[in-house]
């Protein structure tokens, strides 16, 4: 099965023609990042320094919309960092990121925007949780119970 084309770097760009590669990590510089889905499944990827969590998630078909294409303007790439220690190792979110985090659903102490978190040596082994994007569903009146 193919994955969706993800082309959202520039507003004026035409899809399909755009290339948004994730470069392979240099040997010896492989970083690991784990995403835990809302169903509790976890997926670990080997990625390169500088890759951001939005690109990684989208390249790997994980549920992260990234509506604004990673320009820190939508908060649909909200992730929650599992470990407080790791959170503290990260660069502080800047004002722009915090402004969007203010609008994120289910904000936590260790919330970040995936598009603003870039992998680095310090973040090797990072584990983030993807928050639920929907309500718990209920049965229809018509469903035989």
């Amino acid at each position: 099965m193919h994955s969706f084309a993800r082309n959202r770097r520039r507003f004026s760009s035409t899809p399909i023609s755009q290339h948004n590669h994730l470069d392979p990590p240099k040997p010896g510089e492989e970083r690991h990042v784990t995403f835990i889905t809302k169903e509790g499944e976890s997926f670990t990827f080997e990625v390169a320094d500088g890759d951001n969590l939005l690109d990684i998630a989208q390249e790997n078909d994980l549920e992260m919309e990234g509506a604004c294409g990673g320009s820190c303007a939508c908060s649909t790439c909200h992730v929650i960092v599992e470990s407080e220690d790791m959170y503290n190792k990260m660069e502080e979110p800047d004002d722009d990121e915090n402004d969007m985090l203010d609008l994120a659903f289910g904000l936590q102490e260790t919330s970040r925007l995936g598009c603003q978190v870039k992998m680095s040596k310090e973040l090797d082994g990072l584990v983030v949780r993807l928050p639920s994007m929907t309500r718990n569903l209920q049965a229809s009146d018509f469903e035989s119970k």
């Binding site: 084309a5 290339h19 590669h21 997926f43 990625v47």
Partner: peptide, 19 residues
């Protein structure tokens, strides 16, 4: 927490994949 499997992120962008 179970680690599913380590996998390298693909190096070809999605539109290339499709083409």
């Amino acid at each position: 927490m179970p680690v599913h499997h380590a996998r390298r992120a693909p190096y070809v962008c999605a539109s290339c994949i499709r083409r």
